[in-house]
């Protein structure tokens, strides 16, 4: 490689990584703030690297706020929403793809339509509904509300994943003596597994990050998930404690980081697969 080419490469890499540094800076700053001692927080000019690393904010978060309750609620919410949605959507996607009955095409269109529907349109009737059936302020009400956006999303994503499984595989299983359900379980499901994992991951992230329904449907600390819970820490505290909030932000992002490190393959595969590819 010539010297000119080499130096151009170095320059490009420097440029590219500066851009990425800028993009990631808010996240780095979040992490740095969360491990700075309180005293260092208001130094002028701010220090990029803390002089001393402390986890006091994390301890305070756990000790003095209902953070763990929120976290527990968020975990329960994310897992149960995902479980419900994946089961319904896998069966539904399979039906939409490989069966024919009247109204099937229209239904597929409808799924895509609901996938684009704004939540604010549904929220008032859902609020009524939850009060009416006595589920207001409960985690179940949120699971039900979360299916409004996660079910169309999961259905659409799974449909595009499962459409890639050749029809001949199911046909072969039928000829080999399987019933349609057996063919689904023996052949389609194993083939769809990577797509199901991707979809589950995305559904979990959606549920984990949801804010609007949680804001409207739940008003007690016992049932609040992390998103509205952390905001209530912000609102109820006497003065805004940024290091505490940054510690909470880091904690909220830990599951995402774990997903990124270990399941990146599934994340990039599923990213927009349903949306952009149609």
């Amino acid at each position: 490689m010539s010297l000119k080419k080499k130096s151009r490469r170095v320059l490009f890499n420097l440029f590219a990584w500066s851009v990425i540094g800028l993009i990631a800076f808010p996240l780095i700053w979040m992490l740095v703030t969360s491990i700075k001692p309180q005293s260092e927080l208001f130094l002028i000019p701010p220090t990029l690297l803390p002089s001393e690393i402390t986890f006091e904010h994390y301890w305070r978060l756990i000790d003095e706020t209902p953070f763990l309750t929120y976290m527990k609620n968020s975990i329960i919410l994310a897992l149960s929403t995902t479980a419900v949605v994946i089961v319904i959507a896998t069966l539904g996607a399979h039906s939409l793809l490989r069966f024919s009955y009247p109204g099937r095409e229209r239904l597929a269109q409808l799924v895509l339509f609901t996938y684009l529907l704004p939540s604010v349109v549904l929220i008032i009737p859902l609020y009524f509904l939850m009060i009416w059936i006595g589920l207001a302020n409960s985690l179940i009400s949120l699971v039900i509300a979360y299916t409004t956006f996660s079910l169309p999303y999961a259905l659409w994503l799974l449909r595009s994943f499962m459409a890639a499984i050749p029809d001949d595989l199911e046909s072969a299983a039928l000829v080999d003596g399987a019933t349609r359900m057996e063919a689904f379980i023996d052949v389609i499901l194993p083939q769809a597994l990577p797509g199901i994992i991707s979809t589950a991951l995305f559904t979990m992230i959606l549920a984990w990050n949801e804010y609007l329904y949680a804001l409207v449907l739940v008003n007690t600390d016992e049932s609040r998930p992390l998103t509205t819970g952390v905001m209530s820490i912000l609102i109820t505290s006497f003065n805004i404690e940024w290091s505490l909030l940054m510690a909470a932000s880091v904690m909220m992002s830990v599951p995402l980081i774990v997903a990124f490190v270990f399941l990146q393959k599934y994340l990039t595969r599923g990213f927009g697969a349903g949306a952009v590819k149609g």
Partner: peptide, 30 residues
Amino acid sequence: ARSLVLFPYFLSTVVAVLVWKWLFNDLYGV
């Protein structure tokens, strides 16, 4: 690099807002 670029999209909006509010803070914001 790709992971770092992707991350903001998956981040909870609550977290994104808290971080940016802290960056935008008029007295101590970076």
